[in-house]
Design a protein around this nucleic acid. Structure first.
Lengths: 216, 216, 216, 216
DNA sequence: GATGAATGAGCGTTCATTCAT
DNA sequence: GATGAATGAACGCTCATTCAT
């Protein structure tokens, strides 16, 4: 009972924080404004969060946990690397495209310090890349993806592409449906930009690449 | 003469600022620390910059101007979209890979607020995308790139991929040569991830995409 | 209750401010010193006042309001212009003579800028002059004051005289009773400096004066 | 020659200072703005004045010296206390009414600290009062002024009255001729505000006043 | 004498956090 | 649990003054 009411208040605070962080930016965001928007006293914030940073980190952790969970759930329903990559892309774009404020916080505010970035990478991107890597590896085994594909590069490329789509969308003045980009993005990722004729001839020096180049 | 000394001091301040911003982050960076590192008095900073933010913005503007200039210079020496995309990728990765502190400032500090992001987009990314768009269009005309390629998506995909490579490199503990990723990245971008067999069969609903989807 | 504590603290701050302003002058006065003297933290000042200037202005407004109120109360108990002018003079000198620090703030600190002066004039002196003007006009109607007296000049003369008495007193090394000057001042104001014989003869060209000469 | 050029520059600086002090106030006035308005480099100011305060003090001293000199010169041409008081009043009002900026500096800026006030009193008001006192004493001896007049009170009253006229004029929105107030002011000072009938009857307790009450 | 680039001490104000109620 | 008044550390920026040229 008290547990339930508490959770309510905690959620209220997080929802308020998303709006304030998105509009003002993390540093310019005032704890007192979050409290006001959440309808609680300033001090109450500190009953649920250690400090201002903990609000941002908690926000991030909870949303990410849910995103990863639902991504894996959706992946479970599909077979084959091409289709699964399409699912990943759609899920990514749908998640971020559904709540602009939240997207702003994730695309902008969470990247304002290497400290946050490292945490973000360690606790979430790691898992995201693991999922992508697994899908790609399966694709290679099933023959749908090139066997000579450098998996890490490919995973980063896909993530980087999706990430850029979201950032573009956030900064765009015109509002458009982010999810519809999943098709073209995955199509480009799978088929490449070159015309079939070109691909036959020129082969960039793929071999020059070190097999492992580290990564975040 | 006085002009020369001024430029010297200005450069000293910018160099110091890169280091301090990279290590502490923009907000936690102290103007007095920049001054100390630059070997000037606190007040001297304000003879060359309006305020702390102006240091960051100037840094960004001046580096970007130089990057764009040199990118176009390098592009002038090469023919054919595949080779030119390779040049763009190498230039991007070489520029950022050459100075880790500067890269941190560009990948992290400059993105800590939508205000900076918008400025970044408006004054630089716009031009970057224009270059990419032109190269891609030429590629389509010369037949090296697919005629049905959605150019905006492709440009963002390539930029997003390169951007992610740089971010990964910054956050990686292990230091590796960023430029060597240019080959694999462009190869993936051109040829795609799918195996040749797969490409023949399945064709994701490319046509479903709106021809223009806005963009930053 | 909380209301009472607040008022207490506010008063403490104002009292501390009077002392610090009087000793150091407004500009040289340090907010932190006011806070220390008031026994509160620096930040607490800003819970009660918008900024440093607001402390001075509030001080002025609140004291002035009380002064005007008590002046009118005292005037209500007396009849006849001569006696009422005497009341005004005594009240003026008693108010300022009772708290040297407050007098310094009013005579010196509040006049350090035309901005303060204009505010002082608009919000208080205006009313002070209105009171004097009314007393003088009544005196003219009852016949105790000369009918040809230029009222504005007379009001300013009396105020200027009292003001100068206070300023003199503040700067004097020797401490003396300011109120005892009310008698001589009003006597001079009423009877003039000339000997009775002289007055009969020479009459300065009063008529040359424009009937209205503006005024602050 | 060099002497003459130097004096030129010094005067330029003082003239610029009057304008800047009058418009901005002493504290808000920037030395660099005075320099700019005077057409000299910032550093040049310090070849002629010890510091910012010295500019204000020098301004004051030089103007005052000239004022006192010319006042005594004018007084030398007139006989009898009433006429001489009229000369003093006209001189006072003419001096201040001739240059509004200078008047602002004298009425407002010079009074922003007890330090300035004390200096002002010691070096100039002292002499001004000495002149007034002498005129009044002569008036008493020649019989034109009341023998029972408390001289110090009378001198302060006249000064305070004139001072208030100037301050009023400065703050007034409407511009009017200050000098024309000399007549009414002196007339009031000599004849008093009371109607002749009243003066015969009531005599405020003049004797109660301490013979000397100190003074600035 | 003249310059003006450089100095660096100094402070009003904000706001995350605490804790008595 | 909830409140919100109080705290006080922390810092960007200004500008009078200096001094090498």
């Amino acid at each position: 009972m008290s547990r339930k009411r508490s959770d309510d208040k905690r959620r209220k605070i997080l929802q308020a924080a998303v709006k304030v962080f998105a509009r003002k930016g993390y540093f310019a965001a005032r704890v007192s404004e979050i409290a006001r928007k959440a309808g609680v006293a300033d001090g109450t914030i500190y009953l649920y969060f250690r400090n201002k940073e903990d609000i941002l980190v908690s926000l991030f952790d909870e949303v990410m946990q849910e995103h990863l969970r639902s991504a894996e759930r959706e992946l479970g329903a599909v077979e084959g690397a091409p289709a699964r990559l399409r699912v990943v892309a759609e899920h990514h774009l749908r998640s971020m495209g559904g709540n602009r404020d939240l997207a702003v916080v994730f695309q902008v505010e969470l990247r304002q310090s290497t400290k946050f970035m490292e945490r973000f990478t360690a606790s979430w991107l790691q898992q995201y890349f693991a999922i992508l890597d697994k899908v790609i590896e399966e694709g290679q085994q099933e023959g749908s993806l090139r066997a000579d594909l450098p998996r890490k590069v490919a995973a980063k490329a896909l993530f980087g592409t999706l990430d850029e789509m979201v950032t573009s969308w956030i900064l765009a003045r015109r509002d458009y449906d982010l999810v519809q980009l999943a098709g073209p993005v995955v199509d480009l990722f799978l088929r490449g930009a070159a015309s079939p004729a070109t691909v036959q001839e020129a082969r960039p020096p793929l071999a020059a690449v070190a097999p492992s180049h580290g990564g975040r």
